[in-house]
């Protein structure tokens, strides 16, 4: 893990040599119109580097989920610039955006979102099928991926027969199976107990970070902050602080909680 000084810049400094995976500048997103307008993002500046695990933290309603939705291309921004590996989603057609998302981004959700009527191997094979891989090849690769996360002997089971931690491992397999460059995780440990959450983060840190892949993890769970390379703190629709560790964010006492 990289240890950075407190108040690390949200954007790459002048002379930065690291490659940037996600580049957001002055991103604004509003919900609703007129008096009911909610300003979810008020001009976010943020860079995510290749090979980096960035955690997005902050109080509820601060705009974390909106920001990763914009980064992942599942939500349109109103203003500003946001590029993922040099591609601006708003410049792409709907079909191009869908394809790019399917090839480049893996998703891990808070409530796993595994399709209950499919086996876990079939669930994991979905991103491959979307990328044109044949069913048999997709299933084989899905089973291999499940073996990597320790579920190789349960490939034909339904998701609801697995524990929460196991289901999240399946979700991680699904996010990784098509080898995307960016993984977006929304509260991946909030539905899990401390030990399971820790194991899931170890898995994400160990398996998902291979191949210079970037991870953005939205979380409230300060028990997993230690897994981050950088932590971006959001408040009121902006990234107000980027730090290298939980200690830098909350002080030595809070980091241990």
């Amino acid at each position: 893990m990289t240890t950075l000084a407190p108040s690390v810049s949200a954007i790459a400094p002048e002379g930065n040599t690291r490659r940037i995976a996600v580049r957001c500048r002055s991103v604004i997103k509003n919900y609703g119109v007129g008096n009911a307008t909610v300003r979810a993002l008020r001009g976010v500046d943020l860079d995510v580097f290749e090979g980096e695990l960035l955690m997005l933290v902050g109080p509820s309603g601060c705009g974390k989920t909106t920001l990763i939705s914009v980064i992942a291309g599942v939500l349109d921004r109103d203003e500003g610039d946001c590029q993922v590996y040099g591609k601006d989603f708003s410049a792409l057609s709907s079909g191009q955006r869908t394809r790019f998302r399917g090839q480049t981004i893996g998703f891990v959700f808070q409530s796993f979102n595994l399709i209950p009527t499919l086996t876990i191997a079939e669930n994991v094979s979905v991103p491959l099928l979307l990328n044109g891989v044949s069913r048999n090849a997709a299933l084989k690769k899905a089973k291999d991926m499940l073996a990597v996360v320790g579920l190789g002997d349960r490939v034909n089971e339904a998701p609801n027969r697995l524990s929460g931690g196991q289901q999240q491992r399946v979700a991680i397999s699904r996010a990784l199976v098509h080898d995307p460059k960016l993984i977006v995780c929304d509260e991946p440990t909030s539905a899990l107990d401390h030990e399971t959450g820790h194991k899931v983060m170890e898995l994400l840190r160990g398996v998902a970070m291979s191949g210079n892949r970037s991870l953005i993890v939205v979380t409230h769970d300060n028990r997993i902050f230690n897994f981050a390379d950088r932590i971006a703190h959001m408040d009121d629709g902006v990234v107000d602080k980027v730090v290298g560790s939980a200690k830098d964010l909350y002080g030595p006492n809070m980091a241990a909680k």
């Binding site: 599942v74 869908t98 998302r101 399917g102 090839q103 998703f107 979102n113 399709i115 991103p127």
Partner: peptide
Amino acid sequence: DNLKYLGTLKAMGTGD
């Protein structure tokens, strides 16, 4: 009932 999963498929790259 399946909207959540259809949304997941959509997010993962399934076109309309």
